[in-house]
Design a protein around this nucleic acid. Structure first.
Lengths: 217, 217
DNA sequence: ACGGCTTTGGTGACTAGATCACCGACAGGT
DNA sequence: ACCTGTCGGTGATCTAGTCACCAAAGCCGT
């Protein structure tokens, strides 16, 4: 079965032969929400390509605090993991499914064969690297120089559904920012005091997106 | 001239043909110390491979504060730049030579040809990615969770020459850490008060490496 | 329905680090 | 000697992270 290749735009341009090769080396796998795809110190031998759902990649400090590094969405691959391992560097991060996830595992041999044969596949892989690295640069910029209120406001806007509701705990928002729960709690209280959000246990509802958006610049 | 290939251990294993190809596409260039190899928003079309000297890659925030992301040493390449541009992401960083630098510029076409033909070259490139990504993870970990005194102590040890002397300004040390000059000044004063270093304008001399090393854990 | 347990969030006191607004001291050039 | 730019020092203030706790809300078993 190679129907999945059509679901990834960047791979549609593969030649028929390369498609067949990819189909032969790729195996569809599935994981439920909340499943750890990679943990600290694990050594996957496959390249993973997400078809549906999202995977969150986060990092934990020695002191137990965590920060979200980036997310792998449908059509993207977890190239960094592969790269870290090719370089014999410990992959100091953890990947967790946020939803039910369908993915394709492509064996190391398959990846190598395709990198050799296909310029399209190479562009796909390198493009993925570039986007991830840009993500990491953004994280560094935010953590080193960003204000916590602006960062929190930005996250609230991106996570809110159409009704402006976010179902999450303060602790999870803190992990998102690499900050502490108390800090997030106090910021949320301040937002509530200003009438920008309303809070209840396990959820936040935005009542003034414009104000949050202003702050998040 | 292809003598430079022997100076990069990872590329010695190339076949004679691939060596010839690499030599044909590579052009040796030179830059003095303090030269900006890439600036913000520049779009290089070559892969750069450093033969001697070091290049510092740093990032500047909107507010003007800077942080050093990593260094490219002899034998390493600036793959991230290339990747960012392949992905059409703005490369939000600046690369500056710290010493006189000799490098080889390999054209995009040459890189593509070698990635196609040579497993050795692919491993070289991917290994480079992995190491850089590990560097960025370390930076994020330090900035998000690390203490400034420990980070400063660690930098002092790595930058010190055999006599324990570091010729640098407080501002440059602050950039190294992504912190502010005043913060570094005060920390250095505290180290001096404890008898771990002595300071003079434009230089720091370590007098108790062991104590600094203890702190830097 | 009750009592315990876990998860979640609230709070005050304190520390670390960043920011702002200065100032003085030194070095190099003319 | 004087001017100028660089470098470092300082206090006040603000923001963020840490620590130690507590209380309320849901969860589960009996």
């Amino acid at each position: 079965m190679s129907g999945w290749i059509d679901r990834i735009e960047a791979l549609c341009a593969l030649t028929a032969e390369d498609r067949a090769l990819l189909a032969r080396h790729g195996q569809i796998i599935e994981a439920p929400a909340g499943h750890a795809v990679f943990g600290y110190g694990m050594t996957p031998e496959n390249m993973l390509l997400v078809l549906s759902g999202t995977v969150r990649v986060q990092h934990m400090s020695d002191t137990g605090r965590e920060i979200v590094l980036y997310r792998i969405e449908a059509g993207q691959s977890c190239v960094l993991t592969t790269a870290c391992l090719l370089a014999d560097e410990a992959y100091a991060a953890e990947a967790i499914t946020e939803t039910k996830v369908e993915a394709v595992a492509i064996s190391g041999a398959g990846v190598d064969a395709l990198l050799t044969r296909s310029a399209v596949f190479r562009r796909f892989v390198f493009g993925g690297y570039g986007r991830r690295v840009a993500d990491l640069f953004r994280v560094i910029d935010e953590v080193a120089f960003g204000r916590i209120d602006a960062r929190l406001a930005a996250r609230l806007i991106t996570f809110a559904d159409a009704d402006g509701v976010i179902r999450t705990t303060h602790q999870d928002l803190a992990t998102e920012l690499g900050s502490a729960r108390e800090v997030v709690s106090r910021q949320l209280q301040e937002f509530q005091r200003r009438g920008w959000i309303s809070m209840s246990r396990g959820s936040v509802r935005l009542t003034d997106r414009a104000a949050l958006s202003d702050l998040s610049d």
